[in-house]
Design a protein around this nucleic acid. Structure first.
Lengths: 222, 222
DNA sequence: CCAGATAACGAACGTTCGTGCTATATAACA
DNA sequence: TGTTATATAGCACGAACGTTCGTTATCTGG
């Protein structure tokens, strides 16, 4: 095979195109609101032509979740781990996530926040995969905390599970405020809360690695 | 009573019964997944008989949101404000919310967390009402913080908006973990994070009013 | 006791959804 | 050049949805 464009390659290509659009739509309308006819229309394809790529709606949903995972890893996780696995990487990870949602690449904000809440009461392979992936994400967060401790940049008194929980919650909260109110300030509030925690538990040698905190509230009355 | 739903005069009563079931279902399946036929079946009514109470699905959705608000006020907000509007009430408010979700009264956890994420990309009166109500909730939280400051039990350096954002995020995070993983520990983690914040900003005279924090992580290995 | 209002019912309509069957065009290989 | 596999299209089906309509049973005021 001389050139990478074969007869099959076109099929794979369309599949990728389909899934990219699918992630986009599902982040806003949900995986149930993601309709085969609508998706086909958006891509100027026939329903049956598109359908043939997946065989069932459920497989389309799973494939969409998988595609979203790839994007998330490529856009958020991988760019954050180019450093020395210390405090900076931990901060970078959270900051990148917030920036990614803030940039509005997906109409519906964080794909996983949206579909997790949609499927948390719908047993089945779709829900299971979503749960797995978000557990992966939480584990990545926890690992980043532990790495910062190993690097001697974060106090050992911090419970990585606890901090990961809090950071994840702040991210969900920022995403919620942005989606419901278009409130971009929410990202600043999430960053503020995260930095406050990181600064408080950073070791002396590491505290200079982080951005500085916002000035505290003016001590004036009221 | 031979018949499930009697005649006349029970019209208003039936409506209440319908909405109670509707809130229950919508917390799990969403307001879109809340289907008129399904709701009617659950109540052993005819679709058309039920439908006549609302006139359109959208009105049913709005009425359901309104009913959920009443329940939330009755079960969470009102019971928390019997005190002196100080630090204890603030803590009580958050604690009650967590307990309410934890108790599993609704299959889908927090009604508003579920439908907010469902409708945040669907303009219209339903979305608008949901946004209003959650803004109310955030204002209540902010007010509780400010009251605690006025009572001299919380440092004036705390920004009520910031703290309200963080507490709301922690609640969303706990709800998320519980719905997706059945993880009851998440409530403990949310409480831990909240209490930690409250203790740190409580004035000397007020710190004894709060439950004590969990012991910090053992300084052992790692 | 009757007239009107109220509450609920059953059947049907038009639409949209997922899905299955069949046909056609295109590219690879003999 | 003809065969074959593959990608896409066309069409139709059955189910579920929201909604409308006409009807029936019950209660209430005069």
């Amino acid at each position: 095979m001389a050139i990478a464009v074969g007869r099959k390659a076109q099929g794979e290509g369309t599949r990728k195109t389909i899934l990219e659009a699918a992630v986009h739509i599902a982040s806003a309308e949900g995986l149930e609101g993601l309709t085969i006819g609508g998706l086909a229309a958006e891509l100027s394809m026939s329903k049956s032509g598109l359908f043939a790529h997946f065989g069932s709606k459920q497989e389309l949903q799973v494939a969409t979740v998988e595609a979203a995972r790839s994007i998330f890893i490529r856009e958020v996780i991988r760019p954050s781990f180019e450093g020395e696995h210390g405090l900076v990487d931990l901060w970078h990870l959270c900051d990148t996530w917030l920036s990614y949602v803030e940039s509005g690449v997906f109409r519906g904000g964080c794909f996983f926040a949206a579909v997790a809440s949609e499927f948390d009461s719908r047993p089945g392979p779709v829900r299971d995969r979503i749960a797995e992936i978000m557990k992966e994400w939480l584990a990545t967060l926890r690992r980043a905390v532990a790495d910062a401790q190993t690097a001697g940049e974060l106090s050992n008194e911090v419970d990585p599970t606890q901090l990961a929980f809090e950071f994840n919650a702040l991210e969900l909260g920022a995403n919620w405020a942005f989606q419901l109110y278009g409130d971009k300030q929410a990202f600043a509030q999430a960053r503020e809360a995260m930095l406050e925690r990181l600064h408080r538990h950073a070791t002396r040698k590491a505290t200079s690695l982080l951005p500085t905190l916002k000035k505290k509230r003016s001590p004036a009355r009221r």
